[in-house]
Design a protein around this nucleic acid. Structure first.
Lengths: 223, 223
DNA sequence: TGATTTTTGTACCATCTCGTAGGAAAATGT
DNA sequence: ACATTTTCCTACGAGATGGTACAAAAATCA
């Protein structure tokens, strides 16, 4: 008996809220992996090859977890995919939210947003990974209603975020009252989509940046 | 002996150019399928599920050809995929070229182009099939250089076609001399890409048409 | 110490996957 | 009629795939 014997309040059925960081002190054999980093590795694989072309063996090798552990932790392949996608969305949101929050002139704001997006889409050791939402729309979305709904949600979340930016710019007088924030937002999203796709086709960053520049000019006026 | 006995010039090694329609009069057992329709069926499948999720059994069932025949006619799965993609491009070009050719006011022209595109993307009995170029960019493109090159070619072909339209409109005075045809073309392509993706996520046609309308307004002036 | 709980890891299963071998079938040529 | 050519089609094989059973391992609890 090495560690403390404190009886503790380990209710198991109703922990306060999820003890946050305070080491949970689980009962059985400790996990040999960190679920978060494992999920990250799985996400990397799915982004690189897509759902169908990624095998459980690949996932097992990448995460360092053997098949049954993978199963126990995340459920079957489809569930793991869904969790990976949710993780992707959470990550992207985290990287974007300060940019969307900070008050900046609309032009600067868009430029920063696209810069972050390009970082996300061009990352990847074995080729640019693109936008997971766009990729998933292309493959699993039509056949799987649940995944389809998630993808749709991802698309509209982006639309709304952009619309907010343009509305703010309009209210502050940066954009004319005649501007249509929703239409501009859809165009801003379209620009996101086109650079995501082109990134996968290995169009160099310079060119993508030039596309972004033209688009921003058209949306905010050529200034 | 029913048909003609004409010795003929069936050189086999150097037929004039490919006798065109004149029944070739092959030597062995006749084919039980028409390569063109079989390729069309294969394309349908690939568009629906993507390369990795489409098995040779699926392809065999859809085309009515058994595996070895499929092989003999089109090569292995990857070659069949590539031929399917080329066929897709040829089909799309055929549907588009009259629209791109006919002289029309830029606005009408764009509207027609997008209408055709929507027809292509929304077709499919088991869900909208989207744009094959976009889907392939998302999945196979990064890993396979040859496929990547084809996809890139598909993207730039569209860019160029749009650029031609805008240049023509500029020369005819429909667009101001200050307009940037290349930038507008990239935006027009972006709009194609965004509706292709959204179509896969089952966004209804009405909504896609509204996106197109806003985009056209922004490109040609709100008129 | 021994019971309990949880995770690990090997080994396995049934199925599917791509691809091919090899003979039967159906046409033409002589 | 018989050889030749081309295609069809059954059957198979080697390997991959998703998923699971089960015993050993490693922790806590009493």
């Amino acid at each position: 008996m090495v560690q403390k014997t404190v009886s503790s309040d380990r209710g198991l059925a109703k922990r306060p809220v999820e003890d946050a960081h305070a080491v949970p002190k689980r009962r059985g054999r400790p996990r040999a992996y960190e679920p978060d980093v494992a999920l990250g590795k799985a996400l990397d694989l799915f982004r690189k090859d897509g759902f169908a072309a990624t095998s459980l063996d690949d996932l097992s090798a990448a995460t360092g977890m053997n098949r049954p552990s993978l199963y126990g932790a995340f459920g079957d392949k489809r569930e793991l995919f869904i969790k990976s996608y949710q993780r992707y969305r959470a990550d992207a949101r985290a990287k974007m939210q300060d940019v969307f929050k900070v008050e900046l002139p609309i032009r600067k704001r868009l430029e920063r947003i696209y810069a972050v997006a390009l970082d996300i889409y061009l990352s990847g050791e074995e080729g640019p990974r693109g936008c997971f939402t766009v990729m998933t729309a292309g493959s699993e979305a039509v056949a799987d209603p649940e995944i389809c709904a998630m993808v749709l949600d991802g698309l509209t979340e982006l639309d709304k975020a952009f619309a907010m930016c343009f509305r703010a710019a309009q209210e502050s007088g940066e954009l004319p009252a005649s501007a249509d924030p929703k239409a501009l937002a859809q165009l801003a999203s379209a620009t996101i989509h086109t650079i995501a796709i082109r990134a996968r086709a290995r169009v160099p960053r310079k060119e993508l940046e030039s596309i972004v520049k033209s688009a921003v000019d058209l949306m905010c006026g050529p200034r």
